[in-house]
Design a protein around this nucleic acid. Structure first.
Lengths: 206, 206
DNA sequence: ATTTGATATTTTTGTTTAAATAGTCAGGTA
DNA sequence: TACCTGACTATTTAAACAAAAATATCAAAT
């Protein structure tokens, strides 16, 4: 019986999360109202508050679920690369697909535009750490193989390279007000990152 | 006589530019008033408008002067480097000192925070192009010497590397709301950039 | 244990008014 | 004629307040 109740609760929560995900993904945090979410699945707004304490925690729940998918992909692939470049290419491509699919949740620039709950930054950091782990693991393996020269602090170097990759922008106009990226922009950025990685790998090779 | 008049005008203009530079540097565009600038040099506000058509063009004039100093340094050094690394180290250090000295004018993040006149972006672009020229020149020389492997589009590669350097951030918290950088932050970023350049150079070397 | 309508509370938006600031101009001075 | 100013107007920003919208709560129903 307790199971049945929890099962029912879980289904309801799932439905809410799904509706919330849909709204947040398309309209962002501020431009989505609790009324709309409850309306989409034909429940009262009060019921939303029965399942989730407030809007910000609902958002975090949605974002956590999305992040979990990403974290699982990374975790399942860790330690499966035959070289460092393969690992980087995987990281770049996975992040690329992930952002294409979840633009409003993990596109860096959008995160800073909206006034999202502070709690999301822990999730962002967790994802970032997972990416670092994956790549540190790959680089360490290479060092042990002797194909990459020994590094005093692999974590620092990987962090630095990820920063550098993050810096890659679309060609026209060096900086200037950053506008939301569309698919073409993201594709261009991805291509440039892959180019950059080649140089990095070469630079780290013995 | 015409010369005398122009000479006098130039002195006055210079004085205004100096006062404006001081205010803009410390308080930024929006938080500096034309009253304050004129007050600082004990002239009427109307006189300001006699010499400069409006506030935004006064700002651009100040910024142009600052940029000119920078452009002159770059130009005087072009083609004087014995290798590519030296050129990159020079670019990083020069930019570093320049931003330390002129934070409100050329610190990227501050530029996007204030609502500056659009015309400044041309100046930013000009500076950026000058940096690219310097480095393209250095890399081309290296390719001709045979120390760096031939590159199909040097300008593109240099642009990419400058993007990457721009991406370098302070360690704590990967992204998160960008706050104005203090000297310690800028020093840390500079150190990391120098580290990164080593890898790049190695990656480009034959 | 779930669910809701009604209601309270907080935040956002819009409007008005006052103050601050940008910008103009007729006229003065050298 | 070139340079300069005080007094003025026009715009922009800020403050204060009301109205609307959104978040959040709760007593009562199932």
């Amino acid at each position: 019986m307790n199971n049945a109740i929890n099962y029912h609760q879980d289904i309801k929560k799932e439905k809410i999360l799904e509706a919330a995900h849909h709204r947040f993904l398309h309209y962002g945090y501020s431009k989505t109202t609790m009324n709309e979410i409850s309306g989409d699945i034909s429940i009262s707004k009060a019921l939303l508050y029965y399942y989730f304490p407030d809007k910000s925690q609902l958002y975090v729940a949605v974002m956590s679920k999305v992040a979990d998918d990403y974290l699982n992909i990374l975790e399942s692939k860790i330690n499966t690369f035959s070289d460092l470049k393969e690992a980087f290419v995987f990281q770049i491509n996975t992040q690329h697909e992930f952002i294409l699919k979840n633009y409003n949740f993990f596109d860096f620039f959008r995160l800073n535009e909206q006034n999202l709950p502070d709690a999301i930054w822990e999730i962002v950091e967790q994802v970032h750490n997972s990416e670092i782990d994956l790549l540190v693991n790959a680089i360490t393996a290479e060092v042990e193989k002797g194909t990459i020269k020994p590094i005093s602090s692999p974590k620092e170097i990987i962090g630095l390279i990820l920063n550098a990759l993050q810096g890659v922008r679309i060609s026209t106009v060096p900086f200037k007000k950053i506008i939301f990226h569309n698919k073409e922009h993201l594709d261009e950025i991805r291509a440039k990152r892959l180019l950059l990685i080649d140089i990095f790998i070469k630079g780290l090779t013995c």
